[in-house]
Amino acid sequence: MKGKQEYSKNVFFWHNIITNLLLPEKIEFEDYIATDDGFGNKFYDGNPIYNFKIDRLNKGIRIIQQEPEQSSIHLSARISEIELTDGKKLDELVINLELTIESFFIVIDLINAWILNDFTKFRMKRYIETVKHLKTQVSDLQETEII
């Protein structure tokens, strides 16, 4: 992240999106990953830029926003299991992205599948592969100027 202001803008952006997605469904959420070093110094690094868990589903989402120059791959996602401070395990969808209009809508779709449709870990892994495959297909079509 280039500066504290940009970091804050991005956090607000994701908070607004997640709130608008989950509150109408009456889904309560809270963060589970620290955004500071425990001594009051914030990270400001976008790793993660936003995170939230839903206790009822025992699921979380961690969104890591990369610095734009880093990669030609603008989005990747995986399912992981982590242990929280109380020893409880949490299934999390970890998304690495460079924020673009395209990656934004894919993230919305993944959140929809993982949280709103409550996909199982197995189904979600398969769905991530499907989305990846479709994304590649669409990119190929763009190159051949069909779309």
Binding site: D31, Y32, I33, G38, F39, N47, I64, S71, I73
Partner: peptide
Amino acid sequence: ENGPYQVVDKIIIKSFLVPDTEH
């Protein structure tokens, strides 16, 4: 090297992804 880090009530996680790879 920029530590120390202290867990107060939430875990601290950092994932460093290799550029141009997915996993």
